[in-house]
Each structure stands twice: as structure tokens, then as C-alpha cells.
Amino acid sequence: MKWSAFFTSSVGKKLVMAFTGLFLISFLIVHAGINACIWADLVDDSDNGEMFNKAAHFMGSSYVIRIMEIGLFIGILAHIVQGYMLELQNRARRKQGYQVAMGSKGSAWYRKSMGLLGTLILLFLIIHINNFWVPSRITYASTLGEVTYNNGAPIHDLYTRMLVVFSEPWEVILYIAACFSLAWHLLHGFQSSFRTIGVYNKKYVAMAKGAGVAFSIIISVVFALMPISIYFGWVNNN
């Protein structure tokens, strides 16, 4: 079988979804870790976004990270395209329906709604990129201020940008809704990725399911707490 035929087959599409999904999961861990830096002022009143700005600056100035960023966008695009192709393929198969009513034995709603959940996350991602990635990578100082720490070189003040964005109630609600969609998307996608790459042992499948539930909840709560903390003044309350 040709490689092109393999990657357009059902198995090939699922493998692309699995590997890109796992890659994006690793990105979420890194992203959540950087976001968590906004809470540094809970233990150091003088931080005022310094740790977050330095972490964000490192991610934007490191050549290795910038190269990985290209891979990230390719991974996101591949995940989206293959996801929609699989969704269309599954919808075509479901047109005939079941001869016997499945009742409550059918798949969980979030498994059957991966396309919808993914679309909601995509719409959020477009707004998120416009809020933060575009100012920090393209428009620069025209939309971002700069700050200097310890007489060093000026760096982008993304922390203040966050304070401005999350002062708007609709932005906070949007982010919380996106985190809700992300949680359900991950709940199925996490363990499904491991099944696709060949994890069938009952013990490891159970571990993957348990880890998937924990990861889905923790990562989504961490992301949701970021705009909530800023909006309600739990951070930067100096």
C-alpha cells in the first residue's frame, strides 16, 4: 500500500489523529505550566507578572521553541483536517442507522459530539490566537507594552495584555465555555489515542482511562482558573 493511500484510509486517519492528539496534549501541559506563572504573586507580592512575562518571553525568543511552534501549527491543522474527515466518514456510515435500537447502550454523547466540541475549540483558538499570539509575534509594540526587569532588555508585557483581555466578562465566559468543551473533548480523545496506537491490554486501558479523566479535569480547570482569577482580582490585587 502506498503511503498516500495509507494516510487517506480510515486506519491512517485515526493514527494521524492519535499522534497529533498526543502531541497537542503535551503542548497543553507546557501551556498550562506557563499560565500557572500568573499565580506567582500569591507567594510574592512584588512579582506583578514578572515570572509569567519571563516565561512567555523565553517561549517566544528561543529558536528551538519557535521551530517547535511551526510543528505545533502543522499538528493542529492536521488534527483538524483529519478530525473533520473522520466526522464526515462516520456521518455517512450512520445514515443507514442501527436495525436494533441501541438505547442507553450507545456511545456517550461526548464521543458522538467530538466534531461539535472540536469546532467550538477551533473557534476559541482563533480568538485566543488573535488575543495573544498575533500581538506577541506579528503586531508587537503596536498592541503590546514592554517591561524591563533587573535592567535587562525590554520584553513584551503579555501579563498586562491578559489583565486587559480578561477584564471583559464575555471573554471570561468564552474561555470557560472553551475549557468545558476541551474537558469533554479530552475525556474521549485521551484514552482513544492510546487505543489507536495499540494499547489494548485491559490493565493499561484502565490506566489510560483513569489518567484521561484526571488530565481532562485538571488541565481544563487550570485553564479556566486563569481568566477567573484575573477577572475577580485574585491575582494582581496590589
Rank of each mutant, 00 (worst) to 15 (best):
S4W: 02
K54Y: 06
L120V: 14
A40N: 05
C37K: 14
L24G: 08
R94I: 13
Q99I: 09
L24C: 06
T8A: 01
D41E: 15
S61A: 15
S142I: 11
A141G: 06
I76C: 09
H57R: 02
S136Q: 06
F132T: 00
L88K: 08
T143D: 11
I29S: 07
F19R: 08
L77S: 14
W133T: 14
L28W: 07
A92D: 14
W109M: 10
S9Q: 08
Y84N: 02
T139N: 01
L123D: 00
S113C: 10
D44C: 05
L28N: 11
F73P: 02
K14S: 14
T143G: 09
H57C: 03
E69C: 01
L86G: 02
I127G: 01
L120E: 00
F23Y: 15
L120K: 00
A5W: 01
M59Q: 10
T119C: 05
K105F: 15
A78L: 15
G60H: 03
G75F: 11
S46W: 09
I70L: 12
I80T: 12
D47V: 01
L86T: 08
M85S: 07
S26I: 15
I70S: 02
E87I: 02
L117E: 05
A36G: 12
M17H: 10
S46Y: 12
V100Y: 13
Y84T: 03
I76G: 08
I38A: 05
D45H: 08
V11C: 01
T8K: 04
Q82F: 15
W133H: 06
Y140P: 00
F27A: 14
E69T: 13
I127H: 01
G103K: 13
N48R: 14
G71Q: 07
E69A: 09
M102V: 15
L125G: 06
I29V: 15
W133D: 04
V16L: 15
L28I: 06
L15P: 00
E87V: 03
N131G: 00
M85E: 00
A5R: 04
